[in-house]
Amino acid sequence: MATVLAISGCSTTSTQWTQPPMAIPYQANFQQQIQLARIEQILQRPNIPPTTLATIYYDRGLLHDSLGLRDLARLDFNKSLTINPNQPDLFNVAGVIFTQMGMLDSAYESFDSTLDLAPDHPYAHRNRGIALYYGERYDLANDDLLPHYQQDIDDPYRVIWLYINDLKYTPQQANTLLQQRYTASDKQDWGWQIVRMYLGEISEEQFLTEIAEQSQSNEQLALRLTEGYFYLAQIYQHNQDYPTAIMLYKLALSGNVYEFIEHRLSLLELSRIFTTEQNAAPELSSLSE
Rank of each mutant, 00 (worst) to 15 (best):
H148S: 08
L178Q: 05
L146D: 05
M197Y: 06
P88D: 10
Q151Y: 04
G129R: 02
P88A: 13
Y182P: 11
I164C: 07
L178I: 09
P85C: 11
I130W: 05
W192Y: 15
I160L: 09
L72D: 14
D155K: 02
P156H: 00
G191Y: 00
W161R: 06
D65E: 04
Y123G: 10
N84G: 02
F98R: 14
W192L: 05
Y163C: 05
A118P: 02
V96Y: 13
H148T: 08
D186H: 13
D120I: 01
T114W: 11
I164Q: 14
F111K: 05
P122H: 08
L140T: 11
L146I: 12
I194H: 02
N165S: 00
D76V: 13
L177T: 13
Y169D: 08
L167S: 07
N84Q: 05
D152E: 07
L167H: 10
Y169H: 15
Y149M: 10
R70H: 03
D166W: 07
L81Q: 09
L167E: 10
K168S: 14
L72T: 03
R70Y: 03
W190E: 13
D76P: 08
D143S: 08
R128L: 03
R196P: 06
K187G: 09
Y134Q: 04
Y163H: 08
D65I: 02
I194N: 09
